[in-house]
Write a protein that binds this DNA or RNA. Sequence first.
DNA 1: TTCTCATATCAGTATCGGCTGATATGTTGA
DNA 2: TCAACATATCAGCCGATACTGATATGAGAA
Lengths: 108, 108
Amino acid sequence: MRSVEADTSLKSKLFRGLADPSRLSILEVLREGPLNVGEVVAATELSQPNASMHLDCLFCCGLVERERNGRYVYYRIRSRKILQLLAASERVLEEAAEQIAMCEKYEK
Amino acid sequence: MRSVEADTSLKSKLFRGLADPSRLSILEVLREGPLNVGEVVAATELSQPNASMHLDCLFCCGLVERERNGRYVYYRIRSRKILQLLAASERVLEEAAEQIAMCEKYEK
DNA sequence: TTCTCATATCAGTATCGGCTGATATGTTGA
DNA sequence: TCAACATATCAGCCGATACTGATATGAGAA
């Protein structure tokens, strides 16, 4: 059994992985299926180094997997549980969207 | 129907609300039931201004509700969907905890 | 090997957000 | 009204992290 503090610390790390708009938009496009870095760049309009760093971040946190295929590296969402977490966040937004939109914190 | 970009932006705001260890520990203690600010301070060992600001942040983002009772203000988790989101994050951690723990980003 | 393309890495910069200490606001009871 | 307590607010500092531009690494093709 894990301690509560460890859980809280890891959980915050997990949520920070999800808290950046660039990373979220990457996960959004990966929802449709695996993409290589160039395709992610095209789909998200992030710069190539930026996308590469965020993908590495997502990989590091266990949210995506990667596999080299020739010169291309393909990234995919690691598991259904990630998708379920995203879906759960959307259900929260169903009831809290207006409030969150009006909230002055984290304007960006 | 909401646009994808709006969704991504709101979602990142939501996750940022959850991405801070202090706020997560507050949500953790509120899981047991409503608490006033002083009780949150005692349970989390946050400073009073700090706890107050984080509670306001959680309130602002629609994650908790508050209700004044005499001089005390009681905070409670706003809905079951929040609890389900936290539960979903724990299921992700079941499979990604080691990787996230080892990840060098977001050391804190 | 050499060229080309795909991806990763790095230093520098700028910004954002969390924490503290002091103080303000608000509520109850005397 | 005043004193005591609970909570909220604010300025200032500090650390963390996202982005850019340049460059390095790695892989296939010729």
